[in-house]
């Protein structure tokens, strides 16, 4: 599960880049590429938080 979360982070932040490299559709007036990076900037630490919570529960 934790490995899966790491892979998701890698896909969202790195591997998806060539596919989201576009201005349209605009989201909240922002170009799509920049918006994508911005939401992953929020999703990634949330996933790390999840991993942390799982580790804490295990202890």
């Amino acid at each position: 599960m934790r490995t899966l979360l790491l892979i998701i982070m890698l896909i969202g932040n790195i591997l998806a880049v060539p596919f989201v490299n576009s201005i349209h559709p605009l989201v909240l007036g922002m170009p799509f590429f920049l918006f994508w990076l911005l939401i992953w900037m929020i999703i990634t630490p949330l996933l790390t938080w999840w991993i942390y919570a799982m580790d804490q529960a295990r202890e």
Partner: peptide, 19 residues
Amino acid sequence: GAAAFFAVPYVVLAYPIAY
């Protein structure tokens, strides 16, 4: 231009690695 935003995934991913 947009290439400068490589810093965003860079700093974001550094922390799960650090974890």
